[in-house]
């Protein structure tokens, strides 16, 4: 059985990936309209407050799911959910930096065994280092039983 405290000590709160990106207005509009969004600030690039929807932000990643030396837990990680916390509008055509670290690791035990949850936090900053948003991705792994 994997020792979660040991994993936390090795991996939590250590940046493991980063990259630069800029969002494209056209894609923000398409995703917003497909979601049923009707507010101008999300579907009209001419709106002075035009910005990405919370759901669009959840599509942003560092390009790497886990630290390169993170151990295999025996199963394929599944997408268990996403959360987004917004601190400032995220706009297109603005240079931004994405940084990723492991924010939490915890487990839940059931009759079918132990599920391990890994929360990858992706932070979004603009070129002035303003923290724009946090995006949390919960990866769920069903631990392979000891043989």
């Amino acid at each position: 059985m994997v020792d979660l405290d040991e994993l936390k000590g090795r991996f939590l709160n250590t940046e493991f990936a980063s990259r630069d990106l800029q969002l494209q207005a056209e894609k923000l509009v398409t995703a917003a309209k497909a979601s049923g969004e009707s507010r101008s600030e999300f579907i009209d690039p001419c709106d002075e407050n035009f910005q990405a929807t919370p759901a669009y932000l959840c599509s942003i990643s560092s390009g790497q799911h886990l630290p390169i030396d993170f151990p295999s837990l025996g199963g394929i990680p599944m997408d268990g959910g996403k959360a987004v916390e917004r601190f400032a509008p995220v706009r297109p055509n603005v240079p931004m930096t994405v940084k990723a670290h492991l924010h939490d690791i915890y487990d839940k035990k059931g009759r079918s065994g132990r599920m391990i949850f890994i929360v990858v936090r992706t932070e979004l900053f603009d070129s002035a280092d303003t923290h724009l948003a946090n995006i949390d991705s919960r990866l769920v792994v069903r631990e392979k039983p000891d043989t």
Binding site: G36, E37, R39, C58
Partner: peptide
């Protein structure tokens, strides 16, 4: 996509609270 489900939910919120 799961995040499209999130998009549906936030669109519903925005419609309710413009």
């Amino acid at each position: 996509p799961g995040i499209m489900g999130m998009g549906f939910l936030t669109s519903a919120i925005h419609q309710w609270a413009p």
